[in-house]
Design a protein around this nucleic acid. Sequence first.
DNA 1: CGATTTTGACCAGCGC
DNA 2: GCGCTGGTCAAAATCG
Length: 479
Amino acid sequence: MSSKKKRKQRIMHIDLSLEAAEDEEREIEGGHADGDQHHHQQEEEGGEKIILSGGKQGSSHREETQKEEKDQGCENPIAKDAIEDELYALQAEMDRMKEENKRLQEVIDRTSNDYYELQMRLADIQQQGRPKEHRVSLSLGGGSFQEPMKAGESQQIEEPSVAAQSSDLGDDNELGLSLSLRTFAGPHADTSEEKGKGSKSWQPLDDKLQTGGFSTVTSRSINPATRKTRVSVRARCQGATMNDGLQWRKYGQKVAKGNPCPRAYYRCTVAQGCPVRKQVQRCLEDMSILITTYEGTHNHPLPVGATALASAAPTAATFMLPNDAPSSSSTADTAPLSYLNPYLANPSPHLPPMNSLTSSTSYSSIFGAASSNDHGRQQPSSATYPWAASSIPNPGCAGGSSWLPNKGTWNSEDANKSLAGNIGAIASDSKFTAAVAAAISSFVNKDSQTWAQNDGESSSRSSSKWVLESLSNDTKDLS
DNA sequence: CGATTTTGACCAGCGC
DNA sequence: GCGCTGGTCAAAATCG
Ligand SMILES: [Zn+2]
């Protein structure tokens, strides 16, 4: 039963997505369809196609089979003809579907391209606009977001100034570059209440499971001594950890001093000798926020779906986007992520001129938000990005939190896994974000290798939204 | 049965 | 040196 339901949902989603895609397209001022990345997408497209046609076909198929059965039941010689007829009809329909699919793909493609380009343009503009301002953020989705970063919170680094956008941290050797990407889902204008303290307050998580808020911050820093990169991500996520597409083994847990929530230590197990570790801790003030800090560089290729964040590679470029670009949000927001994957897998298809946004990044932060909005359906308009069909593992949250007594609230149902794989398309929302995050980070760590090799493990149920923000602070000790 | 989590012990760095 | 912390180890327990 459930499977049936799921299927239905899938179909619905697809439809929605289509709509959305088209809409987007329109929104994004006509297309520049450049063909590059097509081949990248191809794979995904393929996947999508399969899904799409699968779904639709599925339904029509059912009908047919029923009919067929009927026919067979009659067992008339005439039935043969009828069957053949139907077959034809079916085939025709299939063809039609295929075509439609193709068209859709194209649309998606174009949209993605547009999106990408826009992003780049934005970055450009940003750069030109305020060369001095090293910090910018791109916001995907709407809403306002405040820089949460509590200084003491994430140990080390952070000139808390992260928040102070216009502050001049660019001067003394510090070049802060921040990129924040946020997608938003839903109506809820986050602006809502900010019970936080003063100006910086996270979104309260009131809407936790809903499509709610987003938010995550990440900060990247390079340890001068070890030269190890460290990236920390804040994500609104109710799971015990964010599913970043990589495999981790927990090797320790400790309660940090000022925080009742224990901090968990993980080690990357994708490859045997991988030195990367990550620590995850819940934000004290907003328990819905998970602060994940990655440290080290992977000595192996990252799975495609892996949020590049997870690879705290020495990065470099970062692009900045306007933090307050509400208008842009619409674009970004609707943009399909699916293509992001391709980018990930093969970064540099056509990277627009975002040149030199600092390459010496030592500090970055990403805001991301993950919310689990399952309940099967998501809002058509902005919240769904079904096309993210590929197999991004999805950075959604995974696992239940053990420290939370009432963990039952959030995603205890692991139905997610069941949908794994392609259906991911549906979970698009989260994927989207994930992908975005990944893409961004991939930029960030250009050199990080991202190889294809998806391990499908998606939790389609939880969706996450991310806001990425990366800052780079000079690199005093870079060379 | 292998992989992963749990959890207390152990160790290193730091401030006093 | 001592105590506190954060981080890691590793044996035992679980999980799949
Ligand atoms: Zn690794």
